[in-house]
Write a protein that binds this DNA or RNA. Structure first.
Length: 470
RNA sequence: CGCGGGGUAGAGCAAUUGGCAGCUCGCAAGGCUCAUAACCUUGAGGUUGUGGGUUCGAAUCCCACCCCCGCAACCA
C-alpha cells in the first residue's frame, strides 16, 4: 500500500498577487496530498510560480524594479499566501530556478532532435498598444478597440511545435482514460477541441528577452507556456508521471492537449489525470483585477484562521463547478458549522466530562455503539467531492449534538453516572473519528480536537472557533 | 453562428436506470439550560424557465423557444 503519489497545482503567473480564486486550487490539492500521506503513500506535492514572458518584463520595467527582484518578490508573495493557508507543498518551484531551466533546455532539444520542431514564419496583426498579436476578430472597424489604432502586419520567425502530430494519440488516450480528464464535461470539451483539429504552436519567441534562451538559436526564447508546463516534470522527475495535475478551466487546453503533446514528443509518459476545478465568483461577479473584485486570502486567514478559510472554500464550492464566495458566506459557515456545530459540541461535552467525572471516563465503561460510515468519506475525497465529504462529516457532528440533547446528558450526570459516562464516551468517540477524517481538510483544528478528546484527563476546551467581532 | 454548462422554496444547492420533489441557511412556533445567546423538535414556504409532445406516471425522455455563464488556436 506504499504507493507513489505525485500531485501538482498550476503554477501562478506573477503578473498579479494571489487572490482567493488561486486559493481554492491550492487548498483542494492540499487535501489530496495530506490524504495520501496519511494513507502512507510516498507523496510529492508541487506548486510554484510561472515567471517568464514579455508581460512580466513589462511589469518589472514599469515598476522600476530589477526583473530578478520583481520576480523574487512576487514569488515569495505566493509562497507566503500558501504557507498561511497551511498548504503542505513539498517543493515550491519557480520557472527561474536553475534546475528547471536546465530541464527545459534538455527537453526542448530532445523534442527538436525527435523532429517535432520546425522553423517557419508567423504572420499576424500586431498591436503596438498591446505589444502583442491580436486576431482579426478582436478588431472593430479594422482598429484595435482598446487603442484605437490599426494593427501592423508583422512577420516573425518562430520554431513551431508539431502539436498536430499527436492529436490522434492524445484523443485515444483520453477516450480510453489512459489520460483521465476530470470532470466529464471538461473531457467532452477537450475531445471536441481535438475533433476540430489543432494547429501547431509557436514554441519560441524572437522578441521576448525574459525567458529561457533556445539552446540552438540564442536569438529566441522558449515560449512561456512551454517553459511553464515543463515545471511539472522538472519539479518532480523522480516521481514522474504525475498522478494528477489540479488546474483551472482557463488552462485546460494547455494541460490536456499541448502538455501531453510535448511529453509524447520527448518520449515521456503522460500524467494519469488532469483534474479541472471550477472558477470562483466573488459576490456573484467574476474575480478580476481590472474591476478590483478580488480578495487577498491573507486577509481572510488573518481574520478567521487558515482552517476556517480552508473549510469554507472546500465546503461551499463543489470542485467541478463554479461556486460563489463572499465574506458573508464565510461568516455563515464559520458561525453555523464551525463555531455552533463542531466547536460547540467539543465545548459542551468536555465541560460535562470535566465537571462530572473529573475529566476521566472510568475503566470498563463502553461507549454506546457508534455507527458512522467512514468508507464513504474516503471515496468522496478520491472523487474530488470535498464538499460532499464535509457535508457527511458534519452529519456526524449533528448526530453528536443530537445524542447530547436526546439523552439529556446534563441530567444523566445527576441521575445515572454510568450511563452518563457511556454516552459521553460515545460522543467523544464520534469527535475522535470526526477529527481523524477532518485532518486533510482542517489539519490544525483536527489535531487540536484529537488532543482534547484523547487526553487522559479531559478538561474544558477553549472555544475552537471563537466568535469574530464584526 | 459554433461548442460546453446551467435555469428546482426567499438564498445556495440535491434528486441511481422516468415512480410520493429533498437538504442547508434564513423565517415561524415549541423545548432545553451542559455549551461559544450555542443545542434539539416541529412548521410554513415549489404549477421544477416557457410552450408543446411521449407515457399509467416526467425535474428526469423528445421537439421548439426564452434567459444566464464559460470556451472559441499564440490574450502567460
Amino acid at each position: 500500500m506504499n504507493q507513489k503519489y505525485y500531485i501538482t497545482t498550476a503554477i501562478d503567473y506573477i503578473n498579479g498577487k494571489p487572490h482567493i480564486g488561486h486559493s481554492y486550487e491550492k487548498v483542494a490539492a492540499d487535501v489530496l496530498a495530506r490524504f495520501n500521506r496519511a494513507r502512507g503513500n510516498e507523496t510529492r506535492f508541487l506548486t510554484g510560480t510561472d515567471e517568464h514572458g514579455a508581460k512580466i518584463e513589462k511589469f518589472a520595467t514599469e515598476s522600476g524594479v530589477p526583473i530578478e527582484q520583481f520576480a523574487a518578490e512576487a514569488a515569495s508573495g505566493f509562497k507566503l499566501a500558501w504557507d498561511n493557508l497551511n498548504v503542505s507543498y513539498d517543493r515550491f518551484i519557480r520557472t527561474t530556478d536553475e534546475d528547471h531551466i536546465k530541464v527545459v533546455e534538455e527537453l526542448i532539444t530532445k523534442i527538436k532532435d525527435n523532429g517535432y520542431l520546425y522553423e517557419a514564419d508567423y504572420e499576424g496583426l500586431y498591436c503596438v498598444g498591446h505589444e502583442a498579436f491580436i486576431t482579426e476578430k478582436d478588431l472593430v472597424d479594422g482598429l484595435c478597440p482598446e487603442h484605437k489604432k490599426a494593427p501592423d502586419t508583422i512577420k516573425e520567425k518562430n520554431w513551431f511545435f508539431k502539436v498536430s502530430a499527436f492529436t490522434d494519440t492524445i484523443k485515444n488516450k483520453i477516450e480510453s482514460n489512459e489520460l483521465v480528464i476530470y470532470p466529464e464535461h471538461s473531457k467532452k470539451e477537450i475531445l471536441a477541441m481535438l475533433e476540430e483539429g489543432f494547429t501547431d504552436l509557436a514554441a519560441t519567441r524572437p522578441n521576448v528577452k525574459w525567458g529561457i534562451p533556445v539552446p540552438w538559436d540564442k536569438e529566441q526564447t522558449v515560449y512561456v507556456w512551454v517553459d511553464a508546463l515543463i515545471n511539472y516534470y522538472s519539479g518532480g522527475k523522480d516521481f514522474w508521471p504525475a498522478d494528477v495535475h489540479v488546474i483551472g478551466p482557463d488552462i485546460a487546453k494547455f494541460h490536456c492537449i499541448i502538455w501531453p503533446a510535448l511529453l509524447l514528443a520527448a518520449d515521456l509518459s503522460l500524467p494519469k489525470c488532469v483534474a479541472i476545478h471550477g472558477f470562483l465568483t466573488l459576490n456573484h461577479e467574476k474575480i478580476s483585477k481590472s474591476t478590483g473584485n478580488i480578495i487577498d486570502p491573507n486577509d481572510w486567514v488573518a481574520k478567521y484562521g487558515a482552517d476556517a478559510v480552508r473549510y469554507f472554500l472546500l465546503r461551499e464550492v463543489p470542485f467541478d463547478t463554479h461556486g460563489d464566495v463572499s465574506e458573508e458566506k464565510l461568516l455563515a459557515r464559520y458561525d453555523g458549522d464551525l463555531a455552533n456545530g463542531l466547536g460547540n459540541l467539543v465545548s459542551r461535552v468536555t465541560t460535562l466530562v470535566e465537571k462530572n467525572l473529573d475529566g476521566v471516563i472510568p475503566d470498563g465503561i463502553e461507549p454506546t455503539a457508534v455507527a458512522l460510515n467512514e468508507q464513504d468519506i474516503d471515496k468522496l475525497i478520491e472523487e474530488y467531492k470535498f464538499h460532499e465529504a464535509l457535508a457527511k462529516i458534519w452529519e456526524w457532528v449533528a448526530e453528536g449534538n443530537k445524542i447530547v440533547d436526546e439523552n439529556k446528558l446534563w441530567e444523566l450526570a445527576k441521575t445515572d453516572l454510568d450511563k452518563f459516562a457511556s454516552v459521553s464516551k460515545e460522543v467523544l468517540l464520534i469527535l475522535e473519528i470526526t477529527a481523524k477524517h477532518l485532518q486533510p481538510f482542517i489539519p490544525e483544528t483536527a489535531q487540536k480536537i484529537l488532543d482534547i478528546v484523547t487526553a487522559k484527563k479531559i478538561t474544558k476546551a477553549e472555544p475552537l472557533f471563537p466568535r469574530i467581532e464584526a
